[in-house]
Each structure stands twice: as structure tokens, then as C-alpha cells.
Write a protein that binds this DNA or RNA. Structure first.
Length: 484
RNA sequence: GGCCGAUUGGUCAAGCGGUCAAGACGCCGCCCUCUCACGGCGGAAACAACGGUUCGAUUCCGUUAUCGGCUACCA
């Protein structure tokens, strides 16, 4: 039975790199019909952030990754929070086993001594000083209550290898491996140690993590081997960077799941997009639901090279998800944005929603799209110039002046009715369609582009408001042209 | 500095010794059209460099370059 885990440190919002690691972990488990687990790695007491565990839970829930076991869902191998496991003495117990076997040892070295071991460049490999201590000396030190750490005893000779599913076999000289610390002087285990112990105790079969752990992985095998435990399958994921190829930072704004949500992205689109950062299915399909991702996900197809997080493509994908939404669902979701964009709109907001659905990429685009329904923005009369429509501010003024009375007497203000009427009116006066439609649309909106055409806008705005706006445009044009 | 890894268009990415080197985003053009958007069609755009191996290298092996990671009592 495949079992994976997501093991974040509760240090703040979850950026997309973490999200993707969680996702791949989840997909590997679900693809194989296995279990997905959440474990909180809070062994660094200083980096804790209040509420971070809630963020993790919320993010996983929104993203659609429900865990089978975790802090709120006991599966029999808990607790699932490392600080709690530490209090239960789990890590020390296993550290002692290693000490008894000679694979680990107490180290009482002071910070100062460690410091003195460093080269000019600041690099150091521990010199195994405390390995020489006799049993009596150790007992004595412990009795005196001297602070200590527990270190892994790595031989100086030979090599250590490990196998990663993505990167292949990686071998390192043991001389490169430091005697890493297993238990810190505050009694907490290091990430390295707690991770191995817990993954084993909790029955994790596939270890999925970021590739920043790649070069420290050989050390892990030494721990597994010392215990005689079966080594899990390793799946290291490539890095995700920002557009400057720098590591995604928590501050860059667009990088955390919740920031993205705030910016009007749909969770499904975010998940879909991040899945594609470092992996793609053989059928070349890009839009995939969680269910499809589960079916298609094959971790052997994960890429080795780092990927740039392209917000532009995410926007496109979000637009695709929006277009595919059920109109009523879209309306519900868009309503708050629409109300904010046009607080005093008299028309049916369903119509505005309909206008938006095929034209936005994120919900934040709504404001800019339909804001003019509330009030015509300041605009330059240059907008009345359009080469293809064969119109100019001068002609527009003439057309609009003549059209106002016609519009005032017109009864039928439906889109179709208006279109037919205006078309006929234009023909009567020897104008092309564009020469009447373009000025009207501009007068109505003050914008170069609008959702919907001139007559559709009039239908929505209604007779009174439409005429009022066109009159205002006539005044504006007249004023400017007489000033010249 | 040492060690480990990565390197196909601007970006994501297929490819796994023989291809005119897929596809997607973005960009440009055309069509549709009362402006956009949607939709349709088309275009520009890439194998980091140099050496090998081979009848033949984007693909295999070296070297260099660039980028990244580790080298913490952080994860």
C-alpha cells in the first residue's frame, strides 16, 4: 500500500513550491489508491508562526487535497505533530538505540570549539572529537548536566549512494559527509533525524520533497541502514522559481496560494497550473480536474529542471476555468466583484455577469471591464477617431447631433430593435454602420473597447441614461471643436 | 572553496541515436464582427559552447560556461 506524506514546517503562508510538493505527494498516493498523510514538522521552535497550521489545513482543503491521516484524523500512528512526538520521547529513544550500536554518539563540544574548526571560508566538518570520549567521561558529563547533541557516526572512508526516482543514483564520498546532528541541545530532533524516524514509523513508502534535500539524502540512508530499515522510494521535485529565476520568495506577492486566491484566481486553476510545473501527461492535455490528475499522474514523468512560475499562463488557465463555469455559479462568484465595480447600477446584474464571463481571466478584471456602466470615465475625444470605422471626432459630432432626436423618439430599446433602427437611420443619412455605432459606443462608455456593442450597451443602460450620455458627448465634442 | 544537480523558443514542455525538433502560454497577422472578448486559421521564435563515441547526435561520454542546491544545534 502506497503511503505518502506532506510534511511542512508551520512558518507562514504556503507558496506554490510547497503546494506543488503537497500536490505531487497527494497524486502519487491517490494514483496508486494509497493514503496521503499530513505531518507537522515544528522542531524548530524559533521559526514557528502563529496560525500557520491553520493555513496549511485551509490550503489543503481549498486545493482539494484531503488527507487520510493527520493532526485532525488519527490513523493509529500519531501524534502527527513532531513537537508532540518529541515530548513522548520517541526521537530520543531511537537516538539511544543508535548510540548503543555505535552508530551515533554524544557530543559535548561548545559553540566556540566548533567555530574554531572552520576554515577561512567558514566551512567545517566535525572532527569526531567527542567520539573519543570514554564511557565514564560521557556518564560524568551527562551527570553534570552539560549540554549535548547526538551526532551520527559516519565513516571517513568509502562512499554512500542513494537512489532517487527522478535524478537517478547519487553517490557521495563519505569524507564529504559531516557527522550530522540528530538531537539538538534543546532536546528536539533535527529535521533530518525526525524525518527519517517518522517516515519509517508512519509507514511512508514514497518520500516526496523539494530538491533542496537532494544532496543531504545520502546521509539519510546511513540512518536507515543503521536501523536496518527498508529505504523508501525517493521522489525529489525540481525547484520552482520566479520570472527572474530566483527562488520563489514568500514576499513576492503572487507566490502564495492564499495571495493568489485574493487576486481572484480559482483554486482549481491554481492546482491545475502548478501540477504542470515540472510534469505533464503523455496525452498533452493541459486542463485537468483533480480527478483527471489523479488518473494521469505518473511520477516517473516528473522533470529534473527547475521551472519558472509564469503568472501569465496561470491567468490564461484561470480564464479557461471561468469560461467553463456554469453561468449561475459564475454569477454567484462574480457578484461581489460586480457590486463593487458598479455600486449604483440599475440594470440586472445577471446581464453584466454574462458579459464578463468570456472576457476576464481573474475576478479582479471585472472592475476595469464594467466600471463604465456606473459612470463614464474621463476620456480623450481621440477615441472618436477610428480608421477602420472611417470616423473622426468631427463626423462623430455631426452623427451624434442628428441621432439624438431620433433616439429620443424611438420606443423599442431592445438590442435587436435598436440595431435595426440605427442601421436604417444610418443608411438614410448615407453613413456606414460603423460611422454611427462607433461614436455611440464611445459616447456611452468613454472606452476604446467594451463588452458588447453599442446597441447592447444602450439596452442595458436604458433610454434615459443612453440619451443623457450621448448628449454629454455632443457637448464635449462641440466644446472642443469650437475651441480650435 | 568543496560536493551534488540542472541546461530544448521569452515561459511551460514533448523528445529518450536517424523527426522539416510536437503542443501550450505570450507575441504578430488574417477571418468572424456595431468596438472588444469568445471562436477559427496562419506566422515568427529553441536543442548553452567545445571536444569525443558513432555511418549518424538534441539524445551517450567528457570539458567549459551559466544557474541552482547542500556544506547549520533551518527545514
Amino acid at each position: 500500500m502506497v503511503k505518502t506524506r506532506f510534511a511542512p514546517s508551520p512558518t507562514g503562508r504556503m507558496h506554490v513550491g510547497n503546494l506543488r510538493t503537497a500536490l505531487y505527494s497527494y497524486l502519487i498516493a491517490k494514483h496508486a489508491g494509497g493514503k496521503f498523510m499530513l505531518r507537522i514538522e515544528d522542531t524548530d521552535q524559533e521559526r514557528q508562526v502563529e496560525g500557520a497550521v491553520d493555513i496549511i489545513n485551509r490550503t489543503l482543503a481549498y486545493a482539494g487535497m484531503e488527507y487520510d491521516e493527520g493532526p485532525d484524523k488519527d490513523g493509529g500512528v500519531g501524534p502527527y505533530v513532531q513537537s508532540e512526538r518529541c515530548k513522548a520521547g520517541i526521537y530520543m529513544e531511537y537516538a539511544k538505540k543508535l548510540i548503543d550500536k555505535g552508530d551515533a554518539y554524544y557530543c559535548f563540544c561548545t559553540k566556540e570549539r566548533l567555530e574554531s574548526l572552520k576554515t577561512e571560508e567558514g566551512y567545517a566538518v566535525y572532527d569526531k572529537h567527542c567520539l573519543q570520549l570514554s564511557k565514564e567521561e560521557i556518564e560524568e558529563n551527562l551527570r553534570k548536566g552539560l549540554p549535548y547533541v547526538v551526532r551520527l557516526n559516519v565513516p571517513k572512508e568509502g562512499t554512500t549512494s542513494f537512489m532517487d526516482e527522478i535524478y537517478g543514483e547519487i553517490t557521495v564520498d563519505n569524507s564529504e559527509l559531516d557527522d550530522m546532528i540528530l538531537i539538538k541541545s534543546d532536546g528536539f530532533p533535527t529535521y533530518n533525524f525526525a524525518n527519517v524516524i517518522d517516515d519509517h514509523l508512519m509507514g511512508i513508502t514514497h518520500v516526496v520533497r523539494g530538491n533542496e534535500y537532494l544532496s543531504s539524502s545520502p546521509k539519510y540512508n546511513r540512518i536507515y541502514n543503521a536501523f536496518g530499515w527498508e529505504i523508501p522510494v525517493y521522489v525529489h521535485c525540481p525547484l520552482i522559481t520566479d520570472e527572474t529565476h530566483a527562488k520563489l520568495s514568500k514576499r513576492s506577492g503572487h507566490s502564495s496560494f492564499e495571495d493568489l486566491l485574493d487576486q481572484g484566481f480559482l483554486p482549481e486553476a491554481i492546482v491545475n497550473y502548478t501540477a504542470l510545473l515540472g510534469w505533464n501527461p503523455p496525452d498533452n492535455e493541459e486542463i485537468m480536474s483533480m480527478q483527471e490528475l489523479i488518473e494521469k499522474f505518473d511520477y516517473t514523468r516528473i522533470n529534473k529542471s527547475p521551472a519558472v512560475f509564469d503568472i501569465g499562463k496561470l491567468r490564461w488557465m484561470n480564464g479557461e476555468y471561468i469560461k467553463r463555469m456554469d453561468p449561475e455559479a459564475f454569477y454567484e462568484k462574480a457578484l461581489p466583484y460586480i457590486e463593487k465595480a458598479v455600486p449604483s447600477a440599475q440594470c440586472d446584474l445577471h446581464i453584466l455577469a454574462e458579459l464578463c464571463q468570456s472576457r476576464i481571466e481573474t475576478f479582479e478584471d471585472i472592475a476595469d471591464l464594467i466600471g463604465f456602466f456606473c459612470e463614464v470615465p474621463e476620456y480623450s475625444t481621440d477615441l472618436y477617431t477610428h480608421k477602420k470605422m472611417k470616423t473622426t471626432p468631427e463626423l462623430s459630432l455631426e452623427v451624434l447631433e442628428k441621432t439624438v432626436p431620433f433616439l429620443e423618439t424611438l420606443k423599442d430599446y431592445s438590442n435587436d430593435g435598436l440595431f435595426e433602427a440605427l442601421k436604417a437611420f444610418a443608411a438614410e443619412n448615407g453613413w456606414k454602420n460603423g460611422q454611427i455605432m462607433w461614436p455611440i459606443r464611445t459616447a456611452l462608455s468613454g472606452k476604446e473597447t467594451t463588452p458588447g456593442g453599442a446597441t447592447q450597451l444602450m439596452e442595458i443602460l436604458g433610454k434615459e441614461e443612453s440619451v443623457r450620455r450621448i448628449r454629454a458627448a455632443v457637448d464635449k465634442l462641440r466644446k472642443e471643436q469650437t475651441a480650435l
